[in-house]
Design a binder for these strands. Structure first.
Lengths: 200, 200
DNA sequence: TGACGGTGAGACGTCGGGCGTCTTAGTGTC
DNA sequence: GACACTAAGACGCCCGACGTCTCACCGTCA
């Protein structure tokens, strides 16, 4: 199994700290969360936290975002991996990602409590990383059908569309519903398919 | 209609401020809530807030507690007022209060987020005031059956029991359910009834 | 028109508390 | 006994929230 990750695996202590950051930020909000909150909730001492995540506060949040994105795409890839046709791969990826986003309670809470920070991560600052991880995670599955370049372009577009339709659902299509998503994605797939295999 | 209240009526601006305090404290928690949050949410300027509630922060919370208690007992009294027998008065009051407590989203959120502060208001610091308001609100209805002294004693006990069973429900009785509460309260009522009218 | 009460906007100094760093002592392992 | 790792907490710094104050603005009433 190919390891798709943004860095080395986290130790148990690091995970406990990030769990605490997640819970505290959900409870108090990013800005109102305190390092001492994390100390108390995680049971890990102040000194240890700063040794594991040198740079403080912002490094902590960054590490959490990396871990959550890692998990997100690991699960997504697992869902998609068994698909055979390009159509199925893409539909499963988009529908699965949309549903995962909708089911993410932490994401929902953060979007409600601090839309500024969260939206920035989903639409501006965080997008390059999201695209990068989506590409790293899904390109291996798509490339055999489209080749690397077209794969990257397709995944780029799909990631952006998935985020947009998650943030602002459209009455025209529901990307969380396979029956609705498939015909919506089909023409886009034809657009990206190499002309040699296109039927017209 | 008898006015049972802890002070003069609030102006529109004061209510807007307290609404904002309620929303902000629910959102951020009592301690993490900022006066500037209240300014932003209420649309009332900093200077005006301090002029309306001189003393700052704690005065603001105190005013909110007073207002909410006023409303609580005003609604409770309205529910109870039409009852005729002492039994009905007491059962309606206890069941109504229990249900109101259970339905209070702000109370639930605060209890979950900051149990320390909230429990203190329900079990230590706030109890005298709660008893006082319950007495002021309900004594007029009960006194005609029991006289003022016994009424005060009964209401004191019932208020404490209502709070206790709300905070720590018992498998033996559900004070939010009339059918369960009535037989539970009946013997207590006999205990408080004047011996001249007691049947044994 | 001018006086006046009520309000918004925001500057100001103060002070608490959260920050990031550091030291010390304790614990488990080899 | 050496070593790695951690908890506990002291330390100074500095930001930001606090409460106060001033000023300008607006509507009302004399």
């Amino acid at each position: 199994m190919t390891e798709v990750s943004s860095g080395r695996a986290l130790t148990g202590v690091e995970d406990r700290v990030l769990d605490a950051v997640l819970e505290c930020s959900q409870h108090w909000g990013y800005e109102r969360m305190t390092i001492d909150d994390v100390v108390e909730r995680s049971g890990v001492s102040r000194a240890t936290i700063y040794r594991l995540f040198p740079g403080g506060r912002e490094v902590l949040f960054e590490a959490l975002r990396v871990r959550e994105l890692d998990r997100f795409f690991a699960e997504l890839r697992a869902e998609v991996e068994s698909a055979d046709t390009l159509d199925d791969i893409v539909v499963r990826a988009v529908v699965g990602a949309t549903r995962a986003l909708r089911d993410d309670e932490h994401l929902a809470a953060m979007l409600a409590a601090e839309p500024g920070e969260m939206l920035s991560q989903l639409t501006v600052d965080g997008v390059p990383r999201i695209i990068r991880m989506a590409t790293a995670s899904l390109t291996p599955l798509v490339a055999s059908h489209l080749g690397p370049a077209r794969s990257r372009a397709l995944i780029d577009v799909l990631a952006r569309l998935t985020i947009s339709y998650f943030l602002a659902p459209s009455p025209l299509v529901d990307l969380g519903d396979e029956a609705s998503a498939r015909p919506f994605l089909a023409p886009m797939l034809r657009e990206f398919s190499p002309p040699s295999t296109a039927t017209n």
